[in-house]
């Protein structure tokens, strides 16, 4: 490596750490750098605009927020038990990356995009075929609860291990939302880790975006400053889980 290249790499690294402090507290790594995309740091707030406290999240209850774009649904779940650290995941194209994205006092709070990487089934205002199945509940998609499922083709993902795929046709993990937990117990979304499929998603549901957001362009608008985070039963009319 030439000196100029070396300085460039060091400079870029320092910039990343300065812009995204989450890089210090959590190990997030993607070998081509393309599976980690930083977006505007956005605070998670409740329906009244008050910051959400991590300690107030109910165990195993699914909350929904939109990030990084207004039409991208994401799950926020307090798993009620510690998530694993340094989980090695592999995207559909074979790129490997490391997930350690759980935050909170007990390292149990995780966030993932609620878009299935198989055929882009997603949570929207009308219904949600994506859902978290609590540990004591049963699902057709997997042998046990404590998993995120897609009820369209019965894929299951492990939220404790970076939403790695456990069963079904999904070819890769759910993309995860990188969270920051500050000293005031507030939560912030700062980046997306993993192959996100947003491009295909925005191409595939034009009519839905028109109906719910007034068009594809408006649906792609980036979320800024804060984002309402509500229980899935408030966000969507019907949760469909088998």
């Amino acid at each position: 490596m030439q000196r100029r290249d070396f300085l460039r790499v060091v400079g870029a690294g320092a910039t990343v750490v300065a812009v995204a402090p989450s890089m210090i507290g959590q190990t997030l790594y993607a070998d081509n750098g393309q599976l980690y995309k930083a977006y505007e740091k956005v605070q998670l707030v409740d329906g009244d605009g008050n910051p959400i406290k991590a300690s107030s999240l109910e165990s195993e209850k699914t909350y929904v927020f939109n990030y990084p774009q207004v039409a991208v649904p994401c799950f926020l779940i307090n798993l009620g038990e510690k998530a694993e650290n340094e989980v090695k995941l592999k995207s559909e194209d074979g790129t490997e990356y490391i997930w350690s994205g759980a935050v909170g006092k007990d390292n149990s709070i995780v966030a993932y995009t609620a878009i299935c990487p198989h055929q882009l089934t997603h949570t929207n205002k009308a219904d949600s075929f994506m859902s978290y199945v609590p540990r004591k509940a049963k699902t057709m998609a997997y042998t046990e609860g404590g998993v995120i499922i897609c009820a369209s083709h019965l894929s299951a993902f492990d939220p404790k291990r970076g939403a790695n795929q456990l069963s079904g046709p999904a070819p890769q993990p759910l993309a995860s939302i990188v969270l920051e937990h500050d000293k005031n117990d507030h939560l912030w979304a700062v980046a997306v880790l993993g192959q996100d499929k947003f491009h295909d998603y925005f191409k595939s549901f034009k009519s839905e975006f028109k109906e719910q957001f007034g068009g594809k362009r408006k649906a792609k608008k980036l979320v800024k400053i804060s984002v309402p985070t509500v229980a899935i039963t408030e966000y969507t009319k019907e949760v469909i889980a088998y």
Binding site: D127, F129, M140, A151, S152, I240, Y242
Partner: peptide, 9 residues
């Protein structure tokens, strides 16, 4: 038959 919701969608 349980998959009727998916069929309707």
């Amino acid at each position: 038959a349980y998959a009727h919701k998916f069929g309707e969608k």
